[in-house]
Design a binder for these strands. Structure first.
Length: 492
DNA sequence: TTCTATT
């Protein structure tokens, strides 16, 4: 119906060169409903839009042209991390006119994919625009063949569905679960009553699960629980100091930073990591005060690098994990130690893990290990990734995973105080980090200020390079580039 | 079997 957007009206009225944010002359204007040219005004019923799937190298000025097409923009803000300033890949957008928002949503939501993104752009009312968030359901135990439409059909009779998303892995395969958002809590409740446990999908191991989706907080708690559980399995420090010793240390760092004040020696990233840890500890009801005195650094006392010897045969495989059971005294079995003669770290000859065809996928890959020092992080691994090297560290053998070529980054000029955890934190925003490793001088236990991060796909690696190469921390700028393939060291 | 993000 409308042939001119507000923006076009403005351009026509003001010759197209009007300032976009007004206040040019400091003159007070009587606001005309049809125009927000000089002093931006928005409709009283304007809609704040959430914009998702934005490449992290695009800022407000890059995005404006894309959205101005649908009307005059009242406000456009790219969301950034409050500590690091890191682009979060999404934004809020408010048009002066409600109509513009609707048009933009119609034209853009899921309609095109911005360069470098794997999923289409999201343009929809921000969460803040609709109160009552308890209308989103988690649906589990679906058949992996079921698509969005199948799920919709199953749920549509209970109310109006605003969103329906199948959760998929990077390869596009369904994870067998979905989110369904109704427009009201009552509709969602009705669906739960009618559908939860009502049937068992072919191929599912139990009956359909229909429940309210986790809140952010619940999700964080679950992750922490998983992490704590796995620390017990992988990390001797967890046995020694308790699973939360590491948090206490981070909290000490945070407290130290507070006492040093702004400009303290902690980098913004470390502060960020500390704040996150503190937050997680808080929601778990853990004490906020330091618990375990340490020798002052972030390195727990009493750790020495393992003796390097060599091995003749590949490590015997526990199931298919390649992990000898951790020893109670924190020492790795001697036969697990070996070296490639180049790295300061003992590196296992390549072990290729086979997929467990019964269960499908790589069981070990689901482990996530909180590294205290010299240990290695593992998080979700996609199927089909070949695992790799094993590190002996902290007296325990840990897996160090590499992704396929193009997925592994070399990072240099890390802050001295960065460990595996901070490194992972820094790169998590760009994708699935399957391992992160800061290299440490064996003699001094000091970081060598470089490390490696592996993603499970090249796109994430590229995105990380885009955003993080040259990223300034303190006086230094990060160098982030693809790790050189090291064929020379591969005997097979 | 809990997601790519929501100042």
């Amino acid at each position: 119906m409308a042939t001119l957007t507000n923006g076009q009206v403005d351009a026509a009225v003001h010759g197209g060169a009007a300032s976009t944010n007004g206040l040019v002359n400091g003159i007070s204007h009587t606001h005309s409903p049809a125009s927000c040219a000089t002093i931006p005004m928005k409709d009283h019923d304007a809609i704040k839009l959430f914009i998702g799937q934005i490449p992290r190298n695009l800022d407000e000025k890059d995005l404006r042209p894309l959205f101005e097409e649908f009307g005059k923009i009242y406000e456009l803000t790219v969301l950034k991390d409050r500590f690091t300033g890191m682009h979060k890949g999404c934004a809020f957008l408010t048009y002066c006119a409600r109509e513009s928002a609707l048009k933009a949503q119609n034209a853009l939501h899921e309609q095109k994919t911005l360069p470098g993104m794997n999923r289409p752009i999201q343009v929809k009312p921000a969460d803040s625009e609709s109160r009552g968030e308890d209308r989103k359901l988690f649906v589990g135990m679906l058949n992996k063949q079921q698509c969005e439409d199948d799920v919709r059909r199953l749920f549509e009779s209970f109310g109006s569905i605003e969103e329906c998303t199948i959760l998929r892995g990077p390869d596009g395969n369904s994870k067998g679960c979905a989110f369904v958002k109704y427009s009201t809590h009552a509709e969602a409740q009705a669906a739960i009553s009618a559908l939860h446990g009502s049937q068992t999908m072919p191929g599912a191991s139990s009956s359909l699960v229909v429940k309210f989706a986790d809140t952010d907080k619940e999700r964080t708690i679950r992750r922490m629980q998983q992490m704590a559980g796995q620390m017990g399995i992988f990390n001797p420090m967890a046995l020694q100091f308790g699973a939360y010793g590491a948090y206490a240390q981070v909290q000490q760092q945070a407290a130290l930073m507070a006492s040093v004040g702004q400009g303290g020696y902690l980098s913004p990233m470390a502060a960020f990591a500390a704040a996150q840890m503190q937050h997680m500890a808080t929601i778990n009801g853990l004490p906020g005060a330091p618990m375990t005195p340490t020798s002052g650094g972030s390195t727990p006392p009493g750790i020495t690098a393992p003796t390097v010897t060599s091995i003749q045969s590949p490590i015997s495989v526990n199931g298919f994990t390649g992990l000898p059971p951790p020893q109670a005294n924190g020492q790795a079995p001697a036969e697990a130690m070996f070296t490639n003669g180049i790295h300061p770290y003992p590196v296992l000859q390549e072990v290729v893990f086979r997929e467990d065809s019964e269960k499908g996928g790589l069981g070990v890959a689901q482990r996530s290990c909180f590294g205290v020092q010299g240990s290695c992080f593992l998080s979700s691994l996609s199927e089909g990734i070949e695992l790799p090297q094993t590190l002996v560290s902290c007296g325990v053998v840990l897996l160090c995973v590499s992704g396929p070529e193009g997925c592994n980054l070399f990072i240099y000029h890390l802050p001295q105080e960065f460990g595996d955890g901070e490194l992972m934190q820094m790169f998590l925003p760009f994708g699935n980090v399957i391992s992160s490793k800061v290299f440490v001088d064996r003699a001094t236990n000091q970081s060598k200020c470089f490390g490696f991060v592996s993603f499970d796909n090249p796109g994430s690696a590229q995105a990380a390079i885009q955003s993080m190469n040259g990223f300034q921390i303190g006086m230094k700028r990060l160098k982030v580039q693809l790790k050189r393939p090291k064929d020379a060291n591969r005997p097979y």
